[in-house]
Amino acid sequence: MSQAFRLVQAPPDPQDAPTRPAHHIHADRDTVEEDLLKLVLTLVELLRQLIERQAMRRVDSGDLTDEQEEELGATLLALHDSLSDLCTQHGYSLEDLNLDLGPLGPLLPPRD
């Protein structure tokens, strides 16, 4: 009967690790409202793109009637236009909403 052994590495000692600055959020009192608005607009754009992709899948699979396709298309277009107008009112473009996630890349996929 053989017995298997498993090597388990001990967690690193925090005192041995080089000191690295932690990731910080830099919030400026003067711009916090605009930063929050930009974040909300970014989330709305992300959700809009996800809903649009799901709608395209449903259209391609034939799950929707012609009326449903038209209504969905009009609704998504109205949402896009409203979001675009909000961005313009606050000095942003839709491209400004794409957050850089560092090594993960941009949050929003490139536009087709």
Rank of each mutant, 00 (worst) to 15 (best):
E34R: 15
E52K: 11
T42H: 01
S84R: 15
D28R: 15
S93N: 05
A74Q: 14
H80C: 00
S82E: 13
P110M: 11
T31I: 01
E34S: 11
A78I: 04
E69D: 01
H24I: 14
E71P: 00
E95M: 10
S61L: 11
Q54V: 11
E71V: 09
K38V: 08
L37Y: 03
A17Y: 05
E52C: 08
M1Q: 12
L107A: 05
M1C: 13
L47C: 11
Q54R: 13
G91T: 00
H80E: 03
E69A: 07
L86D: 04
M56F: 11
S84V: 07
E67C: 01
L76D: 02
A10S: 11
R29A: 13
Y92L: 13
S82N: 15
G73I: 06
L72W: 02
Q49V: 01
L97E: 00
R111N: 09
L47S: 05
A78V: 04
T75K: 05
I51T: 14
P11L: 04
D35G: 13
L64G: 07
E33R: 14
R111P: 03
H80P: 07
L77C: 09
P103N: 04
D30H: 15
L83Q: 00
C87G: 02
H80M: 00
L77V: 09
D16G: 06
Q9F: 08
P14E: 03
L41M: 12
E70F: 10
E45W: 01
G91P: 01
D66S: 13
H23E: 14
R111A: 00
Q54A: 14
L46A: 08
E95H: 12
E95T: 14
T42V: 00
M56E: 12
Y92T: 10
E95I: 07
L104A: 12
R6A: 14
D100P: 03
L37Q: 12
M1Y: 11
L107N: 03
H23Y: 12
L50M: 14
T75Q: 08
D35Y: 03
R29G: 12
P110H: 07
D13N: 04
Q49T: 10
H26C: 01
S82L: 13
E70L: 11
L43M: 08
E52W: 08
E69P: 05
E34P: 06
G73R: 10
